[in-house]
Design a protein around this nucleic acid. Structure first.
Length: 254
DNA sequence: ATGGTGGCGCGGCCA
């Protein structure tokens, strides 16, 4: 099974990139974030025509998540139990006996801000939800835009970023609490080229200078992590005209 | 240069 995550920063704008990518990469499951499209306007047929099933949870202007899957999508959830949140950031579903949880973790804006507090509360709530999922499912994949760089190796300039949002200790601790439920960061199961990132700021030639962060993650429950054979960032779509600021991350499970 | 770039949607927010 080939599964990928991609923050597309507007599906309306990036649909050609996404369709081209699906056509050449033969993914079984693609998790999208920041679709920025309400459900009534979701381009469902563009995917069903290619033989995919789709599920989506969108809103106007901001956020929005979707799952594109070769196999049928069951047991959909769009909420964390402990959170009454109008923001559409969560899409979980059972696909071929694997529970897939697609997340668009809040950015957090700045350490100490209201948005930062919301991010930590949100992470706590999703961790509770995952704890519940682990009682029912053995094979779980959590993937998406985590808006957290797990380690300094995931940061182009750790000194410059030290203590700021996306790398702060409290955010990293929250991610570790989630991993502690029995998940592996698939990317780190394998030797990787140094300075591999998944997001580069549009500003200041971030991609050209490889000023990036690895914040798009694929986490697999231990039962599944054993069968993971590849996890890699595909930088190619970031080189296209009018790209998303994120690149897709792909994992293969045998 | 008190920013920079991009999306949404038409002024300012969010990333």
């Amino acid at each position: 099974m080939r599964i990928a995550t991609w923050n597309v920063n507007s599906l309306r704008v990036r649909l050609p990139h996404v369709l081209d990518w699906l056509g050449t990469h033969d993914a079984d499951i693609l998790a999208l974030q920041e679709t920025k499209v309400i459900d009534a306007d979701f381009p469902e047929e563009a995917f069903t025509e290619l033989g995919y099933h789709v599920s989506f949870s969108g809103q106007k202007t901001y956020n929005g998540v979707a799952l594109i899957s070769r196999s049928p999508i069951h047991e959909v959830i769009t909420e964390a139990h402990a959170l009454d949140d109008p923001q559409r950031r969560i899409l979980g579903a059972l696909i071929d006996e694997v529970y897939v949880l697609n997340l668009y973790v809040p950015n957090g804006s700045a350490v100490g801000s209201d948005k930062y507090d919301y991010k930590l509360t949100w992470l706590s709530a999703i961790t509770q939800t995952v704890a519940e999922l682990t009682k029912k499912h053995n094979k779980i994949i959590i993937l998406g835009d985590f808006n957290i760089a797990p380690e300094d190796d995931d940061v182009h300039d750790p000194k410059a970023w030290e203590g700021s949002v996306l790398v702060s200790d409290a955010e990293r601790d929250a991610l570790q609490n989630l991993l502690a439920l029995g998940f592996k960061d698939c990317f780190r199961l394998f030797p990787q080229e140094e300075k591999t990132y998944s997001w580069w700021d549009y500003r200041g030639g971030g991609f050209r200078r490889n000023h990036g962060l690895r914040i798009d993650l694929i986490l697999a429950s231990e039962a599944l992590a054993q069968s993971c054979s590849i996890c890699a960032v595909d930088k190619e779509p970031r080189k296209l005209e009018r790209p998303s600021d994120h690149a897709p991350v792909v994992a293969v499970f045998e």
